[in-house]
Design a protein around this nucleic acid. Structure first.
Lengths: 262, 262
DNA sequence: TAGTGGTCTAGACCACGCC
DNA sequence: GCGTGGTCTAGACCACTAC
């Protein structure tokens, strides 16, 4: 039995109007969808596909780039093209900011990741004063200067999320919020200790393709979008006490929300 | 003054390690980001770029395909490559399923679209009995047969969303829910009239690149992801009365949610 | 008819991973 | 060293749009 994966593929239809590279992409996609190639499996090499279909190499590469754009395969230089493994997803629950979750020694991310059997890391820490962008300033009710807290979250060594919190400077200066490590329960716990009792959070969700910078920071495979989440924290007096801007690898997340029927 | 858009572009750096097609993509991206090419503007033609940079056409096309994958440009056969226009977004509010919104003559989609100055349409209506997929069956608490209601939503002629509602057959048979048009307030209003008082909805959100079928149905440009939303409707007795599976063009939506702090 | 992007060929040389 | 994918060339012909 030949090790050639092309045994799993059919022939081209020369009478079809469909472009050759699309026909090849269709056949590979179908083979993946039907499980003939499984997660992590190596596809036939470009050379094998060239021989199997009797087309030029550029045509084969065009097919593969279609599948890459769909997020179905990833290529690894010098090794081959592989069916993209689906990473474990992180589920964000609708009660993830409930007060009871802030009464622990570790950060919510750490606790939750360890419970799920993953190894959590946080890096790229940066805490500095800034002038906010127009959009952030508006959300913060017109703040002129803010404290920006940037960090990147990783699970088992893989970056999954990059987040920046913006806090009005008058709330943060001289408090643990301005420290690298704000302490147990995070900045929300500190804000409450400072008398800003949290009332609710508004979250705004978009999805889009990543910028080259985001591809780098999150080490995204091609064909993986990002979820862009902007959260606004309101205290019981109606003041906005924080805006958090988060960019997540879309293949690493499922977001859950609960909506009232009343 | 030449009409050539290449006047806005620089030269290549032959000493750079960065691939030529990436350098070209970088320059075009920067010109777009800085507004030198605006939404809807035509980029220089492939021929002009070939002449400007002194490279082969395939190299230029490679650059353009990078930008397409990022969702920055769209190509139109016979016309040119254009900076992708950002369509108006539809905002889904966190109170969109409040009971008061169900007490109107028109569907929520229609009311909201007209309020926003858009022309709403709903098509691809299909209402039929089915055996549910494993996933849907589980969410519905093990239903063996369901009523599936499929429809596509358009704004100003542009498809933005494709949705399928699954209702346990015993709840739907012989009721307006099994009709093409379930009447004012939609199936949620009918379910409540039938004594299933709605308690809350759970929504589960993912983002990913579309399948070829979804590209067709939603007429998606390349580089536009989809938001995949699965909603589960619970009544006050704890029963799941509907699961709604929705695929949305990600560039047409912003989702809003409110999270409690307590 | 002229200009545009879409498809395809048949090569070439390079960079990476692995043995 | 060999097989893999990454980059690039210099053509060709086709299909679509606009005039």
């Amino acid at each position: 039995m030949p090790a050639q994966g092309t045994a799993l593929l059919g022939a081209l239809d020369p009478t079809s109007d469909r472009a050759v590279f699309r026909q090849i992409a269709d056949q590979l996609r179908e083979a993946i969808d039907k499980g003939r190639f499984k997660e992590g499996d190596k596809l036939p090499s470009e050379t094998e596909l060239v021989e199997h279909y009797g087309v030029s190499r550029m045509t084969v590469r065009n097919s593969l780039s279609v599948l890459q754009g769909e997020g179905l395969v990833v290529s690894e230089h010098g090794k081959g093209v592989f069916v993209r493994p689906r990473p474990p997803v992180r589920r964000l629950a609708s009660d993830r900011f409930a007060r009871r979750h802030r009464e622990q020694g570790k950060s919510a991310f750490t606790v939750e990741a360890e419970a799920a059997g993953s190894r959590p890391e946080v890096d790229s820490l940066e805490v500095k004063e800034e002038r906010p962008s127009q959009d952030i300033a508006t959300r913060l009710g017109g703040a002129r200067r803010v404290l920006a807290r940037r960090r990147r979250y990783l699970l088992d060594g893989r970056p999954v999320e990059f987040a920046t919190s913006y806090i009005p400077l008058d709330l943060a200066t001289g408090t643990p919020i301005a420290q690298s490590n704000p302490g147990p329960g995070g900045i929300y716990a500190r804000l409450e200790e400072l008398g800003h009792r949290l009332d609710h959070f508004d979250e705004e969700i978009r999805a889009r393709m990543p910028s080259p910078q985001e591809v780098k920071t999150l080490r995204l495979a091609s064909g993986v979008p990002v979820i862009h989440l902007t959260r606004t924290a309101h205290d019981t007096e109606g003041r906005v006490v924080e805006v958090c801007d988060t960019v997540m690898a879309a293949d690493a997340y499922v977001l859950n929300y609960q909506l009232p029927a009343t």
